[in-house]
Simulated scan of single mutants.
Amino acid sequence: MLLGPDGAGKSSVMERLGRTLPEWRLLSTDSAFVAPEHALISRLRRDLHDHLLPGLGTAYSVDFLAGVLQTAVIHLRDQVQDSDPRVPLLVDSYYYKILAKCRMAGVQDSRLYSWWRSFPQPSRVVFLDVPPETAWRRRGDGTQLNVLEHDGEDGDWAGFERYQRNLRKTLLEETRDLPVTMLPQHPDADRAAEAVREVLVA
């Protein structure tokens, strides 16, 4: 599993690994990795960003948010369970980041979390440990944030930094019983992808 805070570069790394590890199967809810027969996942992701998140707390509750996000969790679980065990598999965040964000948003449904935690576990976690300062720049100095990437209403630097540090802490807490390889920030996506590849094929 590939994991990291917002702006860690997971999508860029996955895209490059798709070219350098053709024998691997890569799973993500990013449209580039969603099969045509699962186009509903891409549509739900767009609607989440375009409609649900802007209305969170007014038009939609955090419990409704968890219900929509669960579609991504179950989709990834289904794909993991249906995978050929002879084919190496890399999953972008699996359920871990969604669970962490639901916890931080105030979703209290422990039964939901227990169910997700019962899913097949990754044999290894590669954590892209990018500092908030880098992630902030990658988010257009805060101009490209959504409400699940910062504390407070304004999306300023202080709220972003606080949220991202808490997200990192929560992600590591959720994966504390798994073998985690921490990778520090690399100068560019190509070198980050190469560092991840070295871990995967070691």
Rank of each mutant, 00 (worst) to 15 (best):
Q121D: 10
W157L: 14
T143Y: 02
L26N: 08
A105Y: 10
Y96S: 05
P184Y: 07
V62C: 09
Y60S: 12
V34L: 06
A135C: 11
L17M: 05
V125F: 04
P131G: 11
V201N: 03
L183C: 08
D63P: 03
L76T: 10
C102W: 04
S61V: 04
G55K: 07
H150V: 12
L90S: 00
S110C: 11
S123I: 09
R168V: 03
R191F: 04
A100G: 06
P122S: 07
V80K: 05
D50F: 01
L44A: 12
G55R: 09
L99Q: 14
G7C: 02
Y94S: 11
P5V: 15
G155F: 04
A39R: 13
R86F: 06
R162V: 04
R43P: 05
T181E: 13
P179H: 09
L90D: 00
Y163I: 04
G142R: 07
K97N: 02
N146L: 07
D84V: 05
R25M: 11
D151W: 14
L112Q: 09
D63I: 03
G57T: 09
Q144A: 15
L3I: 01
T170W: 05
W136Q: 05
S28H: 01
F160N: 11
R111C: 13
Q81H: 10
S12W: 00
S114F: 00
A193Q: 02
D109M: 11
T175G: 08
L167N: 11
G18C: 10
L183I: 08
S118Q: 06
Q164L: 04
G155V: 02
S114Y: 02
T134S: 14
G106C: 05
D92L: 08
F64V: 12
R139F: 14
V73L: 11
R46M: 10
R19I: 05
E198H: 11
G9K: 07
L183S: 09
Q79G: 09
N146Q: 13
R103A: 15
V126H: 00
V125H: 04
L145W: 00
R16P: 07
V34C: 06
Y94W: 06
S93H: 10
R25A: 13
D141R: 15
L53Y: 04
R138H: 03
G55V: 12
S12V: 00
P131S: 12
Y113N: 06
L172C: 05
V62K: 13
Q144Y: 04
